[in-house]
Write a protein that binds this DNA or RNA. Structure first.
Length: 906
RNA sequence: GGGGGAUUAGCUCAGCUGGCUAGAGCGCUUCCAUGGCAUGGAAGAGGUCAUCGGUUCGAAUCCGUUAUUCUCCA
């Protein structure tokens, strides 16, 4: 009997004990960072516990606490060990997972890390010592590194020699990237197999061998080196500890399960899914996979949305969309969920994790709504795709039928709708399957499934080949080369002084070259800079840096983590020495107006619409401000007007800016400042207040001294961006003035054109109605004209050879009229044979019309006749057997047309 | 950032290689039928075929621009 059965500990307790344990060892417990990253070009999502502490390791900033522990939401959807398409197939991969971790920044090192890890696992969690294995770094010749004896000796105090293994550089040496902090690591693995299994094969032989029940649970990283770009390792002055323990696996080990999905982390979700799908988990592989996929994916999707990442068609948003759609697909195919269902899991999940990650529970309605809408939209996509696929399949059948049509085959096809069909030897080309996928978003596995049900094969290789083409195309377009940082003098700290100054005397600390779309650019880091880097929605500053003999334009300023980077197109010839750095003042000033106005808008919206309004996105530049916020209905004109009025009132009050820097976050919250979900805040924050009773926000942006300089605030548009998210675009100051003046100018112009009517809109309304009725009258008039011409032609008709012959030259206003006349006469005579040579606005046109009965005899073909006749007017033409037209250039040829027509008729 | 598709009546969509007087279903209006309702019958209104430009004798259809939107890849 497995040991674990005796232990009962739920996941919440396991998490609590971890945090409590490290708190008792002097660690500060911090909240999880958001799942979605901003300001990091190398990463879309937080994929491990250390991500939020990256800057501490890189030396860009210093941690206030030497010891920290937390549980971190992580998301992994790509990479060597975890492909999205694999999650759910096995029992231990996940998209979102929690990583428990403890850190030392220049404080304790290997001894404490190892002792505490052992104590927690064996004393607190009471995991059996003989089932635990540890690995230590076994050295690497290339890097000239020996075995990590230090760690090995420390482990020997607790662990039997045959439970300690050596690992290679791949498994036991951790690196942040190509260059940067790194060091050996030590992993703890656990053997969860039954005693019988263990007897057959020793646990140590299965460590690091992808066995689902002999798994790594904790990785202790000892950061002691810095790898230079050259590849050389140098020892770090401050050594750090970075550990990460997979929470779901830990729960599996402690709760004595053989699958992460069997723990109470996933079970409530899975039971709910199984209940509504009306299946039992554990009875069928296919439905089990589908249940796991849904239970897993809803976690990733819900928390990503709660952290501010809406599903979209680019970047991180696209990843979220893909995850959700994969869940819908599995539910649709294997659990028969044809209606939106997944959104109902959100509340269950929110409740389950309310105490650890309150952000989801606090935004329950919003997240549920977004998921629901996204589900609906994908189900619509599926429906359309199925229809298209059916069309394709029908086509394939038809082609097939042309070749082999026997009663037996027909019978087979007719039966094929009922379920399993005999293979028919028809293949759906990969190109078509790919087209369905690429253009219409219809998943390949559904294509195969449906095709197979109808006895059709799908060319998988062809599909994969098309997919490859698409990938290489995208890659080729996205080539971006980033060079190494090159130091200019000493590498020091970079300081931002742009809140108080627009100019500075600066030195270049380092620079690097980047190549994008064959364009070479440079990135500079200054020791102190007045340039504001794009952040919080506000655009980065532009401007220049200038030395005694040269001037370099800064075309953009961006942030990478906490580093402020100035983009330039050229590099100064002389990098050393002082530069005069100057920000483009007018752009900054206009952006500041818009940014402060955004704060006023935010406050006004909460005032008018309610407290559920929260910022979901923001863009502030020198021209416009765009503000996305949670709200479930379109705003009425009254609401918009009211918001505008409130903001403009606040502008006229000329409220002075109250800016407080370095406010402890707790104090800021007490002031009433709202923290945004998905935003990462430090220990100390900046608080921007315009009237403490009106607008208090945490913000790093630049602001005007008093609201009066906004001048005027004008909302330009209100629209929807996603389910439950509205967008307002507005302008301020000169922008608002231009907007209003522009609108008035258009109105003035229109009024002048209408000769200044009292009520312009009524006047225009009348004008439109009049136009409509005139058009109708004209139509009637034209019809009458055509009838006259028709009657004229009827009179000139000759009975000959048993048909009614009309050969005439005439003048009509349009090609349409000619057509009308021709059809009119066709309805009148079923033995009609008519050639009309028309002058339309001085352009020659010929029409040949043949009556229904005459057409049936196939004696004459209008299309062929008109081609022949067109030669006479230097033109060409064609049409159908009974009606054809031709146009040309030679107006004088019209008479010849009639002569030729007579010859043709004979 | 790079591909692919779509845009036709109030809505959902047909309209294949340029020439069938631009269609269907639902909805709408009017009339008729039934005790009422579900509904049935008849007639009718409603379209700059997204936009601008080009090719052509002729463009909803082919080519390019812009806009909007869907979708895939990075």
């Amino acid at each position: 009997m497995p040991f674990e059965r005796k232990i009962k500990m739920d996941s919440a307790t396991i998490r609590r004990k971890f945090l409590g344990f490290f708190e008792s060892k002097g660690h500060q417990i911090v909240p999880s960072a958001p799942l979605v990253l901003k300001n990091d070009p190398s990463l879309l999502f937080t994929n491990s516990g250390m991500v939020q502490f990256k800057d501490y390791f890189l030396g860009n900033s210093v941690s206030k606490y030497k010891r920290i522990a937390d549980t971190q939401k992580c998301l992994r959807v790509s990479g060597k060990h975890n492909d999205l398409e694999d999650v759910g197939l096995d029992t231990y991969h996940h998209t979102m997972f929690e990583m428990l971790g403890n850190w030392s920044f220049g404080d304790y090192f290997k001894k404490e890390a190892i002792e505490w890890a052992w104590e927690l696992l064996t004393e607190v969690y009471k995991l059996p010592k003989d089932k635990l294995y540890v690995t230590v770094f076994g050295g690497d010749k290339g890097d000239n590194l020996p075995v990590d004896e230090e760690a090995q000796d420390l482990w020997r105090r607790f662990v039997l020699e045959d439970h300690i293994l050596h690992g290679n550089k791949k498994d036991n040496f951790w690196e942040m990237g190509e260059a940067g902090p790194c060091g050996p690591c030590s992993e703890i693995h656990i053997d969860l197999r039954s005693d019988d299994e263990i007897k057959k094969k020793l646990g140590r032989e299965l460590v690091n061998n992808d066995h689902p029940q002999v798994v790594e649970i904790w990785n202790l990283v000892f950061i002691q080196f810095n790898r230079l770009a050259s590849g050389v390792l140098e020892p770090l002055p401050d050594k750090h500890v970075d550990t990460g323990m997979g929470f779901e696996r830990l729960c599996m080990a402690i709760q004595g399960k053989t699958s992460n999905y069997d723990t109470d982390v996933f079970r409530p979700l899975m039971d709910f899914i199984a209940l509504h799908a009306n299946v039992k988990y554990g009875t069928d592989t296919k439905t089990d996979i589908a249940i796991r996929v849904m239970a897993d994916h809803i976690r990733a999707v819900s928390f990503a949305i709660a952290d501010g990442q809406l599903p979209s068609n680019t970047g991180a948003g696209y990843v979220i969309r893909r995850i959700l759609r994969r869940a819908v697909r599995y539910g649709f195919s294997y659990l028969n969920f044809k209606e939106p269902f997944i959104y109902r899991l959100v509340s269950l999940l929110a409740l389950q994790l309310r105490d650890v990650f309150p952000e989801l529970h606090k935004q329950l309605d919003y997240v549920t709504n977004v998921v629901h809408e996204e589900e609906k939209s994908f189900l619509r996509t599926l429906e359309k795709g199925i229809r298209r696929l059916d069309d394709f399949i029908t086509e394939q059948y038809e082609e097939f039928l042309h070749e082999v049509i026997t009663p037996n085959v027909l019978k087979e096809i007719n039966q094929s709708g009922t379920g399993k069909a005999e293979p028919l030897n028809i293949t759906l080309p990969g190109k078509i399957a790919f087209e369905l996928y690429d253009t219409f978003g219809f998943p390949f596995d559904l294509t195969s499934l449906i095709a197979r049900e109808k006895g059709i094969d799908v060319d998988e290789k062809g599909f994969a080949a098309e997919m490859e083409k698409q990938k290489s195309r995208s890659k080729a377009a996205a080539v971006k080369e980033t060079g190494d940082w090159i130091l200019v003098g000493d590498d020091g700290k970079s300081e931002f002084i742009g809140y108080d100054h627009l100019t500075a005397t600066s030195r270049i600390l380092k620079f690097r070259k980047v190549k994008q779309k064959n364009k070479e650019m440079f990135q500079l880091v200054l020791d102190k800079t007045p340039f504001y880097a794009e952040s919080g929605g506000q655009v980065g500053d532009t401007g220049f840096i200038e030395s005694a003999n040269e001037k370099i334009w800064v075309i953009d300023t961006k942030k990478e983590n906490d580093l402020i980077i100035h983009w330039t197109e050229t590099l100064p010839d002389k990098l050393e020495g002082e530069f005069f750095a100057s920000v483009n003042e007018s752009k900054r000033r206009l952006s500041m107006n818009n940014h402060s106005a955004t704060h006023l808008l935010h406050a006004a919206l909460r005032h008018v619409l309610g407290k559920h309004v929260e910022q979901k996105g923001s863009l502030v530049n020198e021209k416009i401000l765009r503000f996305d916020f949670s709200h479930f209905a379109p705003m009425t004109d009254e609401e918009i007007a009211k918001v505008e009025t409130i903001v403009n009132e606040k502008v006229r009050e000329n409220i002075p800016l109250d800016e407080k820097r370095n406010v402890p976050i707790e104090k800021a919250k007490a002031l009433g400042a709202m923290a945004l979900f998905g935003e990462k805040y430090g220990e100390f924050v900046r608080v921007i207040t315009f009237d403490p009773k009106f607008s208090v926000e945490l913000c790093g942006g630049t602001h005007i001294k008093a609201t009066g300089s906004i001048g005027m605030f004008k909302i330009v548009s209100e629209s929807s961006v996603a389910a439950g998210v509205r967008r307002i675009e507005a302008v301020t100051a000169e922008g608002a003035e231009d907007f209003v003046n522009g609108s008035l100018a258009v109105l003035d112009e229109l009024k002048t054109l209408m000769k200044n009517p009292k009520d312009p809109s009524a006047f225009l309304q009348g004008l439109l109605e009049e136009k409509h009725s005139l058009e109708k009258k004209l139509e009637v008039f034209n019809q009458q004209l055509a009838n006259q011409i028709k009657e004229d032609l009827v009179r000139k008709a000759i009975k000959s050879n048993g048909h009614t012959l009309i050969l005439e030259k005439l003048s009509v206003p349009s090609a349409d009229a000619l057509k009308n006349i021709a059809y009119g006469l066709r309805n009148q005579f079923d033995d009609l044979l008519m050639v009309l040579a028309a002058d339309i606005d001085s352009k020659p046109q010929v029409a040949v019309m043949i009556g229904e009965k005459l057409e049936a005899t196939k004696k004459f073909h209008a299309g062929n006749m008109v081609k022949e006749l067109a030669k006479e007017i230097d033109g060409g033409g064609g049409g159908q057997p009974f009606f054809a037209t031709a146009g040309g250039k030679k107006l004088e040829g019209l008479d010849a047309v009639l002569v030729r027509a007579k010859e043709l008729i004979g």
